[in-house]
Write a protein that binds this DNA or RNA. Structure first.
Lengths: 225, 225
DNA sequence: GCATAATTTAATGTATACATTAATGGATGA
DNA sequence: TCATCCATTAATGTATACATTAAATTATGC
């Protein structure tokens, strides 16, 4: 998001990247506590770059630094999830509306259409992992089309926070058949330059998704993931 | 936003607070570059806590850390300002809608009404500084009523980024007479539990404000503030 | 035996020395 | 004269030693 191009040179940057991987893969589980010195040792570097990385990750909402109690991988409650989905709903709908106003050509929107096709294939093959990755890509691409770098950054942060929770929920929820109709409707509205429809359809899409996830967490008594 | 209650104990926390003051007061001007060692000396501490503070401030969008070129106090272009206002418009309107749904009593809303009254007085006395502070307070209180901690945090960050620019624009723009009608209309809609109206009125309010500010910057050829 | 206070301990917070790196300026060559 | 390469330098990046602090544990008084 901020620093290097391809090869992360600084230890600090490496620490951010590797800690993110450990968090998203679940190796650093939600709610677990970790000492700076342990993390430093496991990453093969001194505490200094690890501390700097932890400050960055705290700013991204992924960890809580709690003096003398270790850094906690931030757990997400159903309330947190609802908050995050509400933010995503608003900002992505704004992005959809702005995208529609940009007057993109069919060619400009090819990538987004391709991503929707990927989701279709994933659904047919019942490959939920592939579907999730394509869904992430769809939302990221949509937001990019809105051309607001702050919206992009915030949406990315919120998506990151949700990603870990999906490790748990992905195989519990119903197959998201409905989703792709919504995605295509948003794409069509953008292509037609209809900002209101793009925003409205996307808003409904996200609102429905929020309900599915939050209900799922509450039904299964997952007070934090 | 994150750590201490009243007395900042750690140097790192002090550095964040004091650097923020220096930025918002204009003593560290937009676009200016500064060495870590200079900042450390002027704050009377070593580089370590200053570096940590700069990482936090970078996360808040207030500075850019550019290796070997010093940290730059992030300047805002008219495009940046438009982006920020768009984010604020969406999230505050969401907050207004959610506030309306909370079913607050007149008593709960007393603080917000008081703040609007403060703005009225400030306008009568033509005290733009007081008006600006009350306007900040209004928006902060509104967002709090929406009960979404992430919306609060993001709105705060965006407001912070705008605050420095207002040093320049505050005395250039027309007296914001219209503003308070809007504020009262939002308050009334919240009190009436009318979420759609609250969101719509607030959206129109912010959209108008965005236009005033962006036009002002462009008219005066302020490519960055 | 229980509560409170003092001591110990284990973690974070800070300073500093050192390593690394990219920009600068100068020398060397064509 | 100009371009390229090398050396210098000045900044950031990292490791480490040390200071500080809050929690845990033990000791002490009642």
């Amino acid at each position: 998001m901020n620093t290097q191009d391809h090869r992360i040179r600084s230890s600090s940057g490496q620490a951010v990247e590797r800690l993110r991987e450990l968090i998203f893969s679940g190796q650093l589980g939600a709610g677990s506590d970790h000492l700076e010195s342990e993390l430093a040792e496991s990453l093969g570097m001194s505490r200094t770059p690890v501390r700097e990385a932890l400050l960055v990750l705290e700013g991204q909402g992924l960890v809580d630094v709690r003096p003398r109690k270790g850094v906690r991988i931030k757990p997400l409650s159903p309330v947190d999830m609802a908050e995050i989905y509400d933010v995503l709903t608003e900002l992505e709908s704004l992005a959809a509306a702005n995208a529609a106003r940009e007057g993109y050509s069919a060619d400009d929107l090819q990538q987004l259409e391709h991503t929707i096709n990927l989701m279709d294939s994933a659904l047919e093959e019942n490959d939920r992992g592939a579907w999730a990755r394509a869904d992430d890509a769809f939302h990221a691409e949509l937001v990019q089309l809105g051309r607001n770098s702050r919206v992009e950054a915030i949406a990315q942060m919120m998506s990151d926070q949700v990603r870990r929770a999906r490790l748990v929920t992905l195989h519990m929820r119903p197959v998201p058949n409905r989703s792709n109709e919504d995605h295509r409707a948003v794409l069509d509205a953008i292509a037609a330059g209809d900002a209101d429809t793009a925003a409205r359809v996307h808003r409904e899409h996200r609102t429905a998704a929020k309900k599915v996830i939050v209900d799922l967490l509450e039904t299964h008594h997952l007070s934090s993931v």
